[in-house]
Structures are given as structure tokens and as C-alpha cells.
């Protein structure tokens, strides 16, 4: 199925991503929040020092979370725990592997450590998730060993427009690859800056060689349903939940809408459970260029 698979069995790293499908992965900054997330039905938590909207507000350099915090969250969680390292910061990734987190997110939400190179993820036993805006970027990360992809979106904005753009972009580019003639494939590899062998796999299978989740700006149950219907297999929700007035209610509503994303009656029910309030959103054009997280990495 993918170059990452050993023989006839799906790679054990991607295997865990299969288990997370159809669920919601929630950003948490404390052990108490991790419990709220798990009780609400999250399939995994992302252990962070600050959620993206606070990283935006605070400015400065955003790094890997303190190990004590990540370990405390691991201790109270029975679901998988993910944690972020900076793009290219393989030493932070080594620390996360040493702690035994279940997934590493090489994330543009943190300040990049390397503007040229991403981590060689094949060096690690812990699986990696990475963000992408388009097919070429997704295949470059998979080539480096990412076991799971997600859209970059524009985290911490409560604005779904970028995640939708990235999802649609990848879908459209996959369709073009599937419809291409074999002779066109090498030129496509050049244009996308994508590994040729992976592009061949995309053409054969009509999808990315690893699962693709949505992230960045998901703020309502309907946002989750939109991403799922556009083909995302799971959604990451960051600032939306624990920046809301009632995180428990909000988390449950998103989980409910994600499980029944294709049933508008249930998504409506979930939306009503929020009691008429939602996260304030940020228009993308209001954001200063250096704080556009989707532009970090290549």
C-alpha cells in the first residue's frame, strides 16, 4: 500500500493513525484538560504549553512543551498522547521519543528551528504527523517518513477557510494525478516537488499513501462535519475547545458531530448543545505575515 509498509502489513506507525479515524484529537495544556477531553470522547490529546490562539497573542518563540507537563498528561490519559516539536528540531523529537509519547507533530504552530530542512522521520520509532497545504508538500513529508498527514489550516484563528483550501487543493491535485498519463508523471513530480515513486502510488491508489486528517481553524460542529465531508478522516481541534465558555459541552458536541458528520440532523443537535456561543474568529488578512503559520515549512 505504501512505501512505509513492511511487506504485506500496514506500517505499525500508520496503524495507530488507522485507530484514530473518525475521531477528534484535542489540544490540551493541563492534565485536567486531558481528563475533560478523554471524558468527552477524544481519540487522542495533543499536549501543549499554550494553544495556538495564545501562541499568536503572546508572540515570541514557541517551543516544545516542558517535559514535566507532557509526562503529567501522559500519566492521566488512557488514550494516545501526541506532542509537538519545532520544524527541523530533531533533538526535541528525540526528547519526545525518550518520554514515549505516542505521536510527534512536527508542527508549524511552533517557531521553526530549521528553515531549510524538516526532520528525517525515518530515524524515529515514534510515528510523526506533519501539516501540508498541497500534494507536493504532503508527499515530501511522507518521503521523510511521516506516517500521518493533516492540513495546515491557519491554527488559532477559528477560521476554517485555510483548512478547506488545503483539503480541496490536495483533493484536486490527487484527481489530476489519477487522471494523468504515465508519461506526464515525471513532469508532475517536478512541478509538485514530490518524490516520483510516491506520486506513482497516488496515481495507483487515488489517495495519499497515509491517512489525511484536518487541522487549523476548526471551531464549530459544522466545521468538523465540513472537513469530514471533504475527505478528512479525523479532525484536530485546537483553541476552539478550551477557549470556549464550556469546554466539556463544546468537546462533546464536536465529537458527536464528527461521528455523524453525514447526518445533518445530528450535527444540528450538536450545534444546539453549544448554547448559542462560539469562538471569536480572526480574518486571515488581519494577521501579520510572519504570524501566518501555514507558510512555515515548505
Amino acid at each position: 500500500m505504501s512505501q512505509n509498509n513492511s511487506g504485506s502489513v500496514i506500517n505499525i506507525k500508520t496503524g495507530l493513525a488507522e485507530m484514530l479515524k473518525g475521531g477528534v484529537i484535542m489540544d490540551v495544556v493541563t492534565a485536567e484538560q486531558a481528563k475533560v477531553a478523554e471524558d468527552a470522547g477524544a481519540v487522542a490529546v495533543m499536549a501543549l504549553e499554550r494553544v495556538p490562539s495564545d501562541i499568536r497573542k503572546a508572540g515570541g518563540v514557541a517551543r516544545m512543551s516542558p517535559p514535566e507537563l507532557i509526562e503529567e498528561i501522559m500519566k492521566v490519559s488512557s488514550i494516545p498522547v501526541m506532542a509537538k516539536c519545532r520544524i527541523g528540531h530533531f533533538a526535541e523529537a528525540q526528547l519526545l521519543e525518550q518520554m514515549g509519547v505516542d505521536y510527534i507533530d512536527e508542527s508549524e504552530v511552533l517557531t521553526p528551528a530549521d528553515e531549510q530542512f524538516h526532520i528525517n522521520k525515518h530515524d524515529f520509532k515514534i510515528p510523526f504527523v506533519c501539516g501540508a497545504k498541497n500534494l507536493g508538500e504532503a508527499l515530501r513529508r511522507i518521503g521523510e517518513g511521516a506516517a500521518l498527514m493533516r492540513t495546515k489550516g491557519e491554527p488559532g484563528t477559528g477560521n476554517i477557510v485555510e483548512a478547506v483550501r488545503h483539503m480541496r487543493q490536495i483533493n484536486a491535485e490527487i484527481r489530476a494525478v489519477v487522471n494523468s498519463d504515465d508519461a506526464e508523471l515525471m513532469t508532475m513530480a517536478r512541478d509538485h516537488g514530490a518524490p516520483f515513486e510516491l506520486l506513482k502510488l497516488v496515481k495507483a491508489e487515488g489517495k495519499l499513501p497515509v491517512p489525511n486528517f484536518a487541522a487549523g481553524g476548526i471551531a464549530t460542529p459544522a466545521d468538523a462535519a465540513l472537513c469530514k465531508q471533504l475527505g478528512a478522516e479525523t479532525v484536530f481541534v485546537g483553541s476552539g475547545i478550551f477557549k470556549s465558555d464550556n469546554p466539556d459541552k463544546f468537546a462533546k458536541a464536536i465529537v458527536k458531530a464528527t461521528a455523524h458528520f453525514d447526518d445533518p440532523a445530528i450535527v444540528l443537535e450538536a450545534s444546539k448543545e453549544l448554547g448559542g456561543v462560539s469562538m471569536r474568529g480572526t480574518e486571515i488578512s488581519e494577521i501579520d505575515e510572519p504570524m501566518l503559520m501555514a507558510n512555515r515549512g515548505w
Binding site: 488507522e18 475521531g23 481519540v43 462533546k252 458527536k256
Partner: peptide
């Protein structure tokens, strides 16, 4: 199927 048992449990109860 495989997945997260706590998540499935919550959804079974909630639905």
C-alpha cells in the same frame, strides 16, 4: 473494530 475503547463507550452511551 479497533480504535479507542473510551471514545466508543462514550459514543455508545451518548447515542
Amino acid at each position: 473494530p479497533g480504535g479507542e475503547s473510551t471514545t466508543m463507550l462514550k459514543l455508545i452511551e451518548r447515542f
